[in-house]
Nucleic acid binder design. Structure first.
Lengths: 200, 200
DNA sequence: TTTCAAATGTTGACGGCGTTCACATTAGCC
DNA sequence: GGCTAATGTGAACGCCGTCAACATTTGAAA
C-alpha cells in the first residue's frame, strides 16, 4: 500500500490502472478488461489512462509484465535453485499450476500477439528465459542449456496451454502434476542418456 | 465452388460467412475479424449472421473447426502414416510450421477460451487427438500411447506458441525445424530407453 | 510569493462494434 | 395459389477505443 513512483493529481494513477486491470481480469476474465472499465474502477474518466499509456495494448502489456514477474516469483517459490530432475519437475508443475489458477492472466501473457518493441514485456520475458536456462545449466552442467532449456520450456508451456484449453483432460491438480512430472522425467532421462556428445 | 448444404436466400450464407472470416483473418489478423466486417464481405447486413450463428463466438468456433481440419490435412501431408521417430518428427515440424504460417488462425484455434459444449470444435479437436495417439501407437507399440502422445503434443504445441510469440527466436523456418526435430528425437529416445516397463 | 508552463484529468464527440427487435421478403410445401 | 417458416433488412441500444478542446493542479522559476 506504499505509494509508488510518480504521484501527481491522483497519486500514481499509472500503477493504480494496472491493479484495477488485474482485479477485473480475475473477476471477469479477458472480456471484462476494457480500458473504460479499468478507468471506471480507478475512479477516473475514460480518457485519463491515455496520459499514462499510449493505448489499450500498452496497458495490457504492463499487466502482462506483472504476470511475468509473478510467474517468476511462483517458480522461485517452488524451488529456489533446483539442481535435480525432481526439483526441476517441481518448478515445471508450478508453471502449469500458475497457468491453471490464473488463466486469464496467462492468456494475456502468451495468448495474444505482442509488439517486439523494447518494452517491459520483453524485459520480463527475458528474465524468465534466463532463469530457466540457469536452472538447466545447474541441473545438467554437461548438457547444452541453450538447446535443452527451450525444449523443456516448450514441453511445460504446451502442457499449460493444452490443459487450459481443455484439449487435455485435467481432472484434478494432482493428476496434472503427475502428468507433467512424468513427461519431464522422460525428457530428462533422454538428455542424460543421449547427451553423451556433451562429453567433449 | 460447389454449393453446399443449406441454400436459401443467399445460397449457403452459413459457409460463405466462414470463408469471409478466413479471408479477413489472413488479410488483417485477429483484429480484422469482426462480425460486421464478415457480414460486409459476404455482402449481407450486420444482423444476417445471427440467422446462422448464435453469436460472434459461434462463428469463431466454426472458423476454428476449419482450422483443425486444415491442420489435420497438413499433418497428414507431412507423412500419411508415420512409424519411425524421424517420420514423427516430420509431422511435428509440420505442426509448428502451420502455426507460423497461419498465426491468426492458430491463435483462434488455441489462444482463446472455448465453450466445452459439444460443438464442431470439440469434435475437430478429438480428431487431432486420435490421429496423434494413433501415430504414437504405431511408432511405439510397446509404449503407453495415452501417456506419451500428450507429452509429444505438449512439446510441439509449446514450441509453436513460443515461436509464435517471439519468446524463442525463429531466425528461419529451417532453424525452427531443426530445433523441433532435435527435441522430438530427445524425447523419443527417452521413451525407448526408459520405457523398459513396457516389456511386460 | 507570485506566476507560469507542463503535467494531469474531464467533457464531449466520433466511428466501430455486438446484439436485438420489428419488419420485409422469399422459399417451399399444402 | 396461398400460407408458414426461413431468411435477410433497418434502425436502434449500449459499449468500446480514441481524440481534441478544455479545465485543473503541480512544481519551480522569478
Amino acid at each position: 500500500m506504499s505509494p509508488a513512483k510518480t504521484a501527481y493529481h491522483h497519486g500514481d494513477l499509472r500503477s493504480a490502472l494496472v491493479n484495477a486491470a488485474l482485479e477485473l481480469l480475475e473477476e471477469g476474465g479477458e472480456t471484462a478488461l476494457s480500458l473504460r472499465a479499468v478507468a471506471r474502477r480507478a475512479g477516473v474518466s475514460a480518457a485519463a489512462p491515455y496520459r499514462h499509456y499510449e493505448d489499450r495494448e500498452a496497458l495490457v502489456s504492463a499487466v502482462a509484465a506483472v504476470g511475468y514477474r509473478e510467474l517468476a516469483e511462483r517458480l522461485g517459490a517452488a524451488h529456489p535453485a533446483p539442481s535435480t530432475p525432481e526439483q526441476l519437475a517441481d518448478v515445471a508443475v508450478a508453471y502449469v499450476q500458475f497457468a491453471l489458477e490464473r488463466p486469464s492472466l496467462f492468456r494475456i501473457m502468451f495468448g495474444e500477439p505482442c509488439n517486439r518493441d523494447n518494452d517491459e514485456r520483453v524485459v520480463a520475458t527475458e528474465a524468465v528465459t534466463l532463469y530457466l536456462r540457469e536452472i538447466v545449466a545447474r541441473c545438467f552442467p554437461q548438457s547444452n542449456p541453450e538447446a535443452l532449456a527451450p525444449a523443456i520450456w516448450a514441453l511445460v508451456h504446451g502442457f499449460a496451454f493444452l490443459f487450459l484449453d481443455g484439449k487435455l483432460d485435467a481432472p484434478s491438480p494432482s493428476a496434472v502434476a503427475n502428468r507433467v512430472t512424468a513427461a519431464i522425467q522422460a525428457l530428462l532421462s533422454a538428455t542424460i542418456h543421449g547427451g553423451r556428445s556433451a562429453e567433449n
